[in-house]
Simulated assay, not measured.
Amino acid sequence: MAEVLLYHHVQGLTDGVRAFADDLRRDGHTVHTPDLFDGRTFGSLDEGMGFVREAGFDALRERGVAAAEGLGPELVYAGLSFGVTAAQKLAQTRPGARGALLMHACIPVTEYGTPWPGGVPVQIHGKEGDEYFAEDLPAARDLAATASAAELFLYPGDQHLFTDASLGDFDADAYRLLLERVRTFLASV
């Protein structure tokens, strides 16, 4: 079984993020869900982004990085949209990563000053018509083409946070398929 460090999206540690973590826990995985927003959740992406701007994007990402300090190095780092910033940074820069799950976002590998580490598998998931993921799609394609064990999955539709059952963007069919792929991934690391 894998140990997963799952970072929430910009709307916070919502019930839908907790439900996703619980789905993985039911499979026997250990899943940590640090709350980078100290209990705050937001009703929209715009409200969440307003909070991130006010609190400081880099400060919140570093809070996410710090959440890994008390955990062993052999983690699967998982991020949902905003949470990808911490998950990807740790997967790229912290030795011992077992894998990365990047959902709804992907950062250019050059952002963290080091190439993607050899032997660290990664899955990237996004909606093909999602205006936010469209900005990240070139980085996702680049990572998928250059990492030794990378998969890029595009789902039909335009919802951004389609994995969060507590939000209006939830897509049950796409979520089931993503969860099946994530389960396969976690079983292999």
Rank of each mutant, 00 (worst) to 15 (best):
Y7L: 04
Y7I: 08
H8D: 06
H9K: 09
Q11P: 00
T14C: 11
D15N: 11
G16R: 06
A19L: 07
A19V: 03
A21L: 00
R26C: 05
R26M: 11
G28H: 12
T30H: 02
T33R: 11
P34Y: 04
L36E: 09
F37G: 05
R40H: 13
T41F: 00
G43K: 07
L45C: 08
D46L: 12
D46H: 10
D46E: 15
G48R: 02
F51H: 15
F51L: 07
V52D: 04
R53C: 03
E54K: 11
G56P: 03
G56N: 05
G56E: 05
D58M: 06
L60A: 02
R61I: 15
E62R: 13
E62S: 08
G64T: 04
A66Q: 09
A66K: 10
A67Y: 03
A67E: 00
E69F: 00
G72V: 13
E74M: 09
E74F: 08
E74Q: 15
L75T: 07
L75K: 06
Y77S: 01
L80P: 01
L80Q: 07
S81P: 03
F82N: 04
T85I: 09
A86L: 06
Q88A: 07
L90Y: 06
Q92H: 12
P95F: 03
A97T: 03
A97E: 05
L102E: 03
H104M: 14
P108I: 11
Y112W: 13
Y112R: 05
G113L: 02
W116P: 02
G119L: 06
I124T: 00
G126W: 04
K127A: 14
E128Q: 14
E128V: 15
G129M: 11
D130M: 07
F133C: 12
A134L: 14
A134F: 10
D136W: 07
P138H: 07
R141C: 02
D142N: 02
T146P: 02
A147I: 10
S148T: 11
L152A: 10
F153P: 00
Y155F: 07
P156M: 01
H160W: 06
H160G: 13
F162Q: 01
F162A: 04
T163K: 00
D164G: 03
D164W: 09
A165S: 12
A165P: 00
G168N: 09
D169P: 09
F170M: 05
A172C: 06
L177G: 00
L177H: 12
L179V: 06
T184E: 14
T184R: 14
T184N: 10
V189C: 13
V189T: 15
